[in-house]
Computed example of a mutant assay.
Amino acid sequence: MIHITLGAMRYVNPKDDQLGRDHVGWDPNMGDEALFRANRGCWVLGERADREQYALLSAQGIVRQAIEIDRLVPVSGGRRAIEGRFLQAGHPVHDAYVEKPQPVEPARNPVTYFESPHAARTCGCGCGAPVTLGWFLTGHDQKALHDRVARIGTVREFIDWFDRIYTEDARTMSSKIVSITAHANDKNTCSAHGASAQCTSLIADVVLSDAGSEHVEWAVCARWLGENPDAAAWLESHPEAAARLNAS
């Protein structure tokens, strides 16, 4: 989590300020909106900041505001500003820190970082484990990558597939569902979530077509089938297939 120490409120020239502000810093009479707008930038935020979901603003040793980060945007001078929203009472991060002593020791640098259990996210590989720093547990990024390569075939086949369907301009890969039937193919791992997710029951085979191939065959679990809007729409428009799937 990012922690930012604020000084006392001071006035600045809007013509010189990178965000057009006329004041920065903290004052006890500031409301949440004013505090956020005055202090969302401009900070020296390194690479670690890109992996953080929340930031705390502290003044006089007390946390004054918690912010949920949407993204960090560059401003001049190599600094960045936070785009997001301040949190209110009832959010676990707000309730854990706001109006309580700051969770880090004072430092010369106004921007510091600390690990917080309240900033945990689920590991990006799909294993379900919480992570408080970055997007993956150590080594799980490679597991996630290899799981996805295995869905296509060999590394060479994956590269050929990726190069065929990757669109440099749009940077999107679109797939269309051709059919959904009861699971009967030889796949024993959920193609949507990968081996690390350990989906316990595969219930359907899904044939997809995309820019790289007219026939990509998946085996999927009940969760994917229930949560995927394209699958729900396909089954709604093919009631006979949906009935056969439900009967299996």
Results as ranks from 00 to 15, higher is better:
Tyr97Asn: 04
Cys42Pro: 03
Val206Cys: 09
Arg21Tyr: 00
Val24Leu: 06
Glu214Lys: 10
Gln142Lys: 13
Arg171Val: 06
Ile203Tyr: 04
Gln88Phe: 07
Gly41Met: 02
Ala242Asn: 06
Phe86Met: 10
Gly124Met: 07
Asp16Gly: 06
Val75Leu: 13
Ala241Cys: 04
Thr5Ser: 09
Glu105Met: 11
His118Val: 09
Thr200Pro: 08
Glu217Asn: 09
Gly41His: 00
Asp169Glu: 14
Arg148Phe: 11
Glu115Ala: 15
Gln102Trp: 00
Arg21His: 01
Ala129Ile: 13
Arg80Val: 06
Ala192Ile: 09
His193Ala: 12
Ala182Asp: 04
Pro239His: 06
Arg85Phe: 03
Lys15Arg: 12
His238Thr: 10
Pro74Asn: 10
Gly84Ala: 13
Ile177Asn: 05
His23Met: 01
Thr132Ala: 14
Leu87Lys: 02
Trp26Pro: 00
Pro92Arg: 07
Asp147His: 04
His140Leu: 13
Gln88Thr: 11
Leu208Trp: 08
Asn188Trp: 04
Ala233Gly: 05
Ala243Lys: 10
Ala233Pro: 01
Asn13Ser: 15
Gly128Cys: 10
Asp205Trp: 03
Gly84Pro: 01
Ser58Tyr: 01
His91Pro: 02
Leu6Gln: 00
Ser209Ile: 06
Ser76Asn: 10
Pro229His: 03
Arg48Pro: 02
Thr189Gly: 09
Ile177Thr: 08
Phe114Trp: 10
Val149Gly: 06
His140Lys: 10
Ser196Thr: 15
Gln198Thr: 14
His146Cys: 15
Glu105His: 05
Lys15Thr: 14
Ile152Pro: 02
His193Met: 11
Glu217Trp: 02
Thr112Arg: 06
Phe162Ala: 15
Thr5Cys: 07
Ala247Met: 06
His146Lys: 15
Ile4Thr: 00
Asp16Ala: 14
Ser237Leu: 09
Val216Asp: 13
Glu99Trp: 06
Ala81Ile: 07
Leu137Pro: 03
Gly84Val: 07
Arg108Ser: 15
Val178Arg: 09
Tyr97His: 07
Gly46Ile: 06
Cys123Arg: 06
Arg21Met: 01
Leu56Val: 05
Ile177Trp: 02
Glu214Thr: 13
Gly78Trp: 03
Leu45Ile: 05
Thr172Arg: 08
Arg37Thr: 02
Glu52Cys: 13
Arg40Phe: 00
Asp27Val: 03
Tyr54His: 13
Asp16Thr: 07
Arg40Pro: 00
Thr132Arg: 11
Ile159Gln: 11
Phe158Glu: 07
Ala204Trp: 00
Thr172Phe: 04
Phe162Ser: 15
Cys127Lys: 03
Asp186Met: 11
Val178Ser: 08
Val207Ile: 11
Ala184Val: 12
Gly90Trp: 02
Glu99Pro: 01
Pro239Thr: 09
Ser213Met: 09
Ala211His: 08
Val207Ser: 11
Leu133His: 13
Gln198Arg: 14
Gln60Thr: 14
Thr112Phe: 02
